[in-house]
């Protein structure tokens, strides 16, 4: 009796959820922004194609796609970091796309060499500092942060965070492993406190006087400036922004990006969605809704981000962050970056 009920439950539940409707685009996304949901809604309204969304952590989503294999309902994988896209591609999960729109709109630096994934938006890892304690022009490069004169003045989040791992990977790519390790060691020696919290917490710590310098992603600063919470707003407007390495390789850029599953059942509609996401209108929403830099040039930025000023970005292909990620973590382990 109970068994029959359980079986019935299993079947009803199975039919209720596992049947993927033909033509609908199924998205696995590691981005958790309301502006993304609004974008999918726009797409559905314009094309009549429904978008089904499953948000999760990128590594877990990748594992799920691997386990699901050919049966995977996923059509599109969206990640908030180039390293993870590289990993998904290495696992053979992504298809090579033939789309003129995508290849012409997105610079080669921000997509896979064989077009297996594409950047959708850019985020810059900037340095912020307390202008009451530090003069303009004293900090110009990421490398400067290892200078012993900043002893006990720097705040940064933990090394388990992917943004720090990608940053270190970019330093390895630019300066080599040995110098990158020396840099990481110098940085750790200069920390004001044990690495902790998120990027916003680092900015709050500057406001509270716990440290004078922090490394953060630019949109967190923008979101704090935009915040209705007075403490957050005040903390953010009182720091100054440095786009690092402007006289050499340029500031570290990471991307949010997407690829189409090698097992996609709705390839055509999935491609339509990706192409929609790089239209001017959609790109403007990445900029306005989430304070990111659009992947397509010439799109209007949000006022707050516009005020950060012009900058040069590191031109390296972002795929390298994925390749050098394990090396970066080893260095972090060795220098004791918690």
């Amino acid at each position: 009796m109970i068994l029959r009920r359980i079986l019935l439950l299993i079947f009803s539940v199975f039919f209720a959820f596992a049947t993927a409707q033909n033509g609908e685009v199924n998205v696995y996304s590691a981005r958790h922004y309301d502006s993304d949901i609004a974008l999918f809604k726009d797409f559905s309204e314009q094309t009549g194609i429904k978008v089904n969304l499953l948000e999760g952590k990128s590594d877990a989503l990748i594992e799920r796609m691997i386990s699901e294999g050919k049966n995977s309902p996923a059509d599109i994988l969206i990640s908030a970091d180039a390293g993870r896209l590289w990993r998904a591609e290495q696992a053979g999960l992504l298809a090579s796309l033939d789309s003129e729109i995508l290849t012409t709109r997105i610079a080669a630096q921000f997509r896979h060499p064989e077009n297996k994934w594409f950047g959708l938006s850019r985020r810059i890892r900037i340095i912020v500092y307390n202008p009451n304690e530090i003069a303009v022009g004293e900090i110009n490069n990421y490398e400067d942060l290892a200078d012993p004169k900043w002893h006990g003045q720097i705040c940064v989040r933990s090394s388990s965070n992917i943004y720090n791992q990608s940053l270190l990977a970019s330093v390895i790519a630019a300066d080599g492993t040995v110098k990158a390790e020396e840099w990481a060691k110098g940085l750790v020696n200069n920390l004001a406190r044990k690495p902790q919290g998120g990027d916003r917490d680092q900015i709050k710590a500057i406001a509270a006087g716990e440290c004078n310098i922090a490394i953060v992603n630019h949109y967190y600063l923008a979101k704090m400036i935009d915040s209705s919470d007075k403490t957050q707003h005040n903390a953010a407007v009182n720091v100054k922004v440095v786009f690092p390495n402007q006289s050499n390789r340029g500031a570290h850029v990471n991307i949010s990006g997407a690829g189409i599953s090698a097992n996609a059942k709705n390839y055509d509609n999935a491609l339509k969605l990706l192409e929609f996401l790089v239209t001017d209108a959609a790109q403007a929403k990445f900029a306005a809704g989430n304070f990111e830099y659009p992947i397509v040039d010439g799109i209007e930025l949000s006022d707050i981000v516009e005020n950060f000023g012009e900058f040069t970005a590191d031109p390296i292909n972002v795929a390298i962050y994925g390749e050098l990620n394990p090396e970066a973590i080893r260095i972090m382990d060795r220098v004791g970056w918690q």
Partner: peptide, 23 residues
């Protein structure tokens, strides 16, 4: 729940995670 759930299916814990992960 995060990794095994069906499409378009969120719980309260997931909502907290979404917002907290964006700080």
């Amino acid at each position: 729940t995060l990794i095994i759930r069906p499409f378009n299916f969120d719980t309260l814990a997931i909502q907290i995670y979404r917002l907290a992960s964006d700080e």
